[in-house]
Write a protein that binds this DNA or RNA. Sequence first.
DNA 1: TAAAAATACTCCATAGGTATTTTAT
DNA 2: ATAAAATACCTATGGAGTATTTTTA
Lengths: 304, 304
Amino acid sequence: MELRHFRYFVAVAEEGNVTRAAEKLGIGQPPLSQQILALERELEVQLFHRTGQGVVLTDAGKALLVDAKRLLDDARHAVVNAQRAGRGETGHLNLGLTASAAFHPIVRALIRAYRSAYPSVGLTLTEDTTAGLLAMLEEGRLDLALLRPGTHSFAGVTLHEIASEPMKAVLPATHALAKSRRISLSALAEESFVLLPRIASPMLHDEIMSACRQAGFEPLIGQQAPQLSSVVNLVSAEFGVSIVPASVSQIHAEGVVYVDIADADVVTKLALASREADRSVKVNNFLEVAGTSTMASRRTRPRR
Amino acid sequence: MELRHFRYFVAVAEEGNVTRAAEKLGIGQPPLSQQILALERELEVQLFHRTGQGVVLTDAGKALLVDAKRLLDDARHAVVNAQRAGRGETGHLNLGLTASAAFHPIVRALIRAYRSAYPSVGLTLTEDTTAGLLAMLEEGRLDLALLRPGTHSFAGVTLHEIASEPMKAVLPATHALAKSRRISLSALAEESFVLLPRIASPMLHDEIMSACRQAGFEPLIGQQAPQLSSVVNLVSAEFGVSIVPASVSQIHAEGVVYVDIADADVVTKLALASREADRSVKVNNFLEVAGTSTMASRRTRPRR
DNA sequence: TAAAAATACTCCATAGGTATTTTAT
DNA sequence: ATAAAATACCTATGGAGTATTTTTA
């Protein structure tokens, strides 16, 4: 039994006449008769009463007509659904992001652009640490993650840079350098630093540490805070100074100033991470909307 | 696109491996590969990612798998439904009956027997005059009718006798003959008769009239009543005598007696009427349950 | 008897088989 | 290097065409 049998059956049922149905189908009357007879033989049910003027449906035929039409419709729908899914127009996308990435205006813009381009794709946003996001990405619980890649890279993960921004120093307004337009990192060599714990954002943490070392000193970590806003508040309370991505300067707090850093390459990058093996159209569409060129896809340190 | 493509696709999707799926389907790997490729080409959608260890579904494939399985299930159901309809096990039957037929115990028994044999067939009972029933039968608004066929027969209607019963005389208890075990019709020659109007039950009416004429007299119709129970009540009120099918003697009324009639052939028949052209299995099943042998199928007086 | 469906046969398109190559890990 | 899918080519089933017969009202 094939869809052809249903197509032919519906045509004959609707014409009430094998000859005319055959014309409509673009085949001859005898092959159509044969196919109908073959269907009746296979189903072991008579579908038509033969009359001198054509054919009329039996009760079995009437019952089958309803189901056959629905079946043919459903088959067409299945094709359309598959095609839409194939173009990445339907389905669901699990997107992860780190707390610091969430501050970047490009992230909001990216999500909006994707939603308007693919309105039928469901989006779930999950906020977690970089390590957590990468683990979820590998397990397949995330399809994409927005994070700040560090010096180390991860096996099976492709990073697509979407933004690079300078770091800024965060100083209490009372600080001697608070009125400078730009300072060099070495000027902060004796300061106590307020940073996010390394576990929360190892990439950002490592970038700050290595920038300081490159400037010739080992930063003294006086205080740790779990949120970037807390970091800024602690600086405001004169617990020390900090270094944050420029986009974080959106956080305005009393008694805090953001100062440009003169040192070259004190920048942090925002990247979209995807599974290297993931060939999903939905993910590719997202990357396309992000307009990214893939960063070097590295496979240096296989994850345990 | 044929059901074969869906069957093959589901097999490959569930095995995740073309070679194993081919074994399961009892065909070779190359033809299965070809059919899957043909499906992908026709849908213009990639359904599988090919890997070294087999194949994995794309998003489009995942979407199609759900629909394809449902489609194959639905096709199987459609076949079962058609077969059940073909055996007359589903659907609806419109059954008509006359007021006088409704009294006969065989009618109740017949309907019960059919319901228990074909519990999934819906039954609608319609009570009307014989003429009304025959018209509805011809128009297709009824599939079968239980009625008392008269001397005339109808075009395109087959009558299946299901019972033949004697007539009885209905007399007031005060009547001179009320205590007789049996009387001859001629004894009622001078009586006034209470009958159903001819329009309500022409067959029964004509049978009574012709029985009287055969007994040598023209009955005097003193009163007409629309219902058999009213006829009995009028006899009870001494408006006259009547003649009714024996099964009507179920109606017990004060001051009324039912007396056997001695004359030969004063009988009335109960028949099941169906359209001659109707080859419906449901109707045949009903006739089979009724255990009927078809009465002469006559076509004497074509209906206007 | 006249219209339509069924049968008889022929043909060829294509599903399926066999052998081999290409691909992916 | 190996398992699996794809390609190439061949075979044969059966869908479709042509001619004719049978059926039904």
